[in-house]
Amino acid sequence: MASPGENKTTSDSQQEEISALRDYFKDNIRILSSIGQFSYILKIRTDQYDVSLTLQLDESYPSKAPEIIITAPRLTAEQVLLVQQLLQSYSKTILNQPMVLLIYSRLLQWFAENNIQTLNANSNNNNNNTTNSSNTSASRSPPHSLISNQNQNKTTQSDEPIKKTSMKTSEDVISRIEWDTRLDKRYFRVGYIDRFLGLQEKSFNDFDFQVDLSTVSDRHSNVLAIPKHRIQYFKYNNEIIWDKETRTDLVFGSTGNQQTIYDVIARHESLMENNYTPS
């Protein structure tokens, strides 16, 4: 068992890496702390490929690899599963050191190796070749190359903003989970803003979404009911499937995702089968 001093060192190491990542990624990273079993949940956006990399770190990180989730509307479900398994395996080879930036770099390398075009590739073939070359270099070079490449892509995309599609609301998600008999409510969780405690997360079954909030007193402790606009995200089995801030929708696929909740469930079932080893 680790001593209190060792636990403190691990915690301090995590905080140092989180601070460095916040400075490095700026607006392209979202950091949640103390969510369920995890010390941190990191969501990193890679705008040039329209992909979100989610890493879930528990208190044993970095001696234990983070749980990795990829959200990539432009990829097929099979590609998402492939790259997710690749990164998960890679992370187990680089334990006991800060590994988030290494995993991110490996993700960029995979995109380059598989000739996945950047979002602005179709507008100018010459720019596409330059960008792909830059991305390949970024995935295999020291961190300062990643920074310069990331800033370059931000500048390019700001010139040609992408029109956002209409996103399904939290109320739509609630209705789907409640009335779709193929969905098991026990595997869903809700992240929401509490007026006094900030960001909280509870099981979907803990809520009564049918309650008229005007009849609920703040001192009424037996009813967990919140205004739907306070809902920030929904999870399925620890994977974020709907997120207000990042416009992630893996329930309906309303924001252009090629995946829906059935793809997510199938992927988790596949992972469970692959990780199962008979005694």
Rank of each mutant, 00 (worst) to 15 (best):
A2S: 10
G5N: 11
N7L: 14
K8C: 03
E17S: 01
K26S: 13
D27S: 14
L32I: 06
L32H: 05
G36T: 05
G36P: 02
I41P: 03
K43M: 11
I44H: 04
R45Q: 14
T46P: 00
T46Q: 15
V51P: 00
V51K: 04
S52E: 03
S52R: 00
T54K: 00
L55Y: 02
Q56P: 00
E59F: 01
E59R: 06
Y61L: 02
K64M: 01
A65C: 01
T71R: 01
T71P: 01
A72T: 01
Q84D: 11
Q88A: 10
T93C: 10
T93K: 14
N96V: 04
Q97I: 04
Q97H: 07
V100F: 03
L107T: 02
L108E: 09
N114I: 11
N120E: 09
A121F: 00
N122W: 07
N124Y: 02
N127L: 13
N128L: 06
R140T: 15
N149C: 11
N151P: 05
N153C: 13
T155G: 02
T155M: 06
Q157R: 12
E160L: 12
S166Q: 15
S170Q: 10
I174K: 03
L183F: 08
L183Q: 06
D184W: 06
D184S: 12
F188I: 08
Y192L: 05
I193R: 03
I193Q: 08
R195I: 12
K202W: 09
K202N: 15
F209M: 06
S214E: 13
S214Y: 07
T215F: 05
L224W: 01
I226P: 03
I226C: 01
R230Q: 11
R230D: 10
W242I: 00
E245S: 13
E245Y: 10
D249G: 05
L250F: 07
Q258R: 11
V264L: 05
L271V: 09
M272I: 15
M272Q: 13
M272Y: 11
N275S: 14
T277L: 11
